[in-house]
Nucleic acid binder design. Structure first.
Lengths: 242, 242
DNA sequence: TCTAGTATCGAACCAGGTTCGATAATCCGT
DNA sequence: ACGGATTATCGAACCTGGTTCGATACTAGA
């Protein structure tokens, strides 16, 4: 059905001839739109109009919306990677891993539209892959099997991904509003839970106070530390462990 | 801009008068479509035509596509919940937790379209919330603070969510095809990695063999066990731990 | 100058979500 | 049994947004 596609979309990114665009300009504008109003706000038409061009031109630089999103992600991942590489290497590999994961998490907090897309790029050379390598490299210093290393990196990234998934759904559109929004949002949950039968929902009643007004970052850190604790134990008992 | 919406969409689900539809029929057909061809294949028009009705009728039962998806998720979650509750309670709470998470994961493997949507329902009574309660209840038997319990459940669910995110993006459309597809898919990754400079990508080269042909379930279990190990340690040293 | 490749553009196509008013079927009070 | 009120059904029409395609420049080299 679909012909093999022979669109450009991966030009050598040479400098623009006419006074017009460039892949960098396109990506920059895309990131702007994403930062301003989130993923659904990035439309080809909107992007074209921001660039002062026609929709057709956008398709010269990217092969479609999906490709655009992927490139935008890779684009900002470059900055994250740079920040990760800036820090000096301390001693403990697990501490390193932790610091990197936190940096990544912070980036996702700033740009919720990164969502869980930020790990889709590991099939080709790019910042996703470099990030993956960077994370995993820390594990080379641990006494583990390759399979265990692979699983460990996946697990650590998984913590970030799931936190990102959480983040991505919380604020319906209350980004622009003040700070009351979040409290209200959480409050609605809490109110619902408190209204439930304590006999049927003992756990919910146990945690509702902790949940109300909880901090996403602490929640993330808790999950991360659980995983890292497990990892430390695994590394401590050597690779012959299951 | 958007008027407050006063559509029905939450009728008491009384029995159909005419020989026609019902919310169950709608949800059933929706789940069929989702199972057959994944989330993007669920269109209002497609659903209506499968039901032998008009698009307008669908909107009598659900308030929109998003609501439809949420209800479909809740629908199948009922089955998962039943399966989880079927098993007898063994002794160890962490083992319980583990078994439940695995059951949930298996459900996601069967229905990748559950994606990370399956935990969106905790703001209202429903199977999502009951699942959450069920998971968390196991933790009541552990010596933890409510905040730690909250964090722990989030962490465990996070492992499932991130695994679901992985699953949801792997097979482009090779669902119907035989079993060669997956090998090929992974093989492409592996080939790319092996072609990279070992000096620049030592980690990737270390794990590429483990990655090639890896099993998603084992990957999930490894991440889960890392988290559960951390949890056991946390519970072992009591609630006054950080 | 001629030609091929590089870019730009926007009209037009198409899929799919959502709205809305017409209409039928049913229920209930009188 | 009758007549409004309620419950449901239906699909044409609207609208947003991704994608295609052919026309048209503009540039560099032969």
């Amino acid at each position: 059905m679909t012909p093999p596609r022979q669109r450009p979309a991966d030009r050598p990114a040479r400098e623009r001839r006419r006074a017009s665009h460039s892949i960098e300009a396109v990506l920059g504008a895309a990131v702007e739109l994403l930062d301003e109003s989130g993923e659904p706000a990035l439309t080809i038409r909107g992007l074209a109009s921001r660039l002062g061009t026609g929709v057709g031109s956008v398709y010269w630089y990217v092969s479609g919306r999906d490709d655009l999103l992927d490139r935008a992600v890779d684009h900002v991942l470059g900055g994250v990677l740079a920040e990760i590489e800036r820090h000096p290497r301390t001693g403990d590999p697990v501490d390193e891993l932790r610091r990197m994961a936190v940096t990544l998490f912070d980036a996702v907090v700033d740009r919720p539209w990164l969502g869980s897309r930020f790990m889709r790029g590991i099939d080709a050379e790019g910042n996703s892959l470099r990030l993956y390598e960077e994370l995993g490299r820390q594990l080379l210093r641990l006494d583990l099997t390759p399979l265990q290393r692979f699983h460990a990196v996946t697990a650590v990234l998984g913590v970030v991904v799931s936190a990102a998934a959480d983040l991505g759904q919380e604020p319906p559109q209350a980004v622009v509003d003040g700070l009351v929004e979040r409290e209200e949002f959480l409050g609605r949950f809490a109110a619902t839970w408190r209204a439930l039968d304590p006999g049927e929902y003992p756990f919910l009643h146990d945690i509702v106070d902790a949940f109300d007004g909880h901090d996403d970052k602490q929640q993330f850190l808790a999950a991360l530390d659980l995983t890292l604790t497990g990892l430390r134990q695994l590394a401590g008992q050597g690779p012959e462990a299951p």
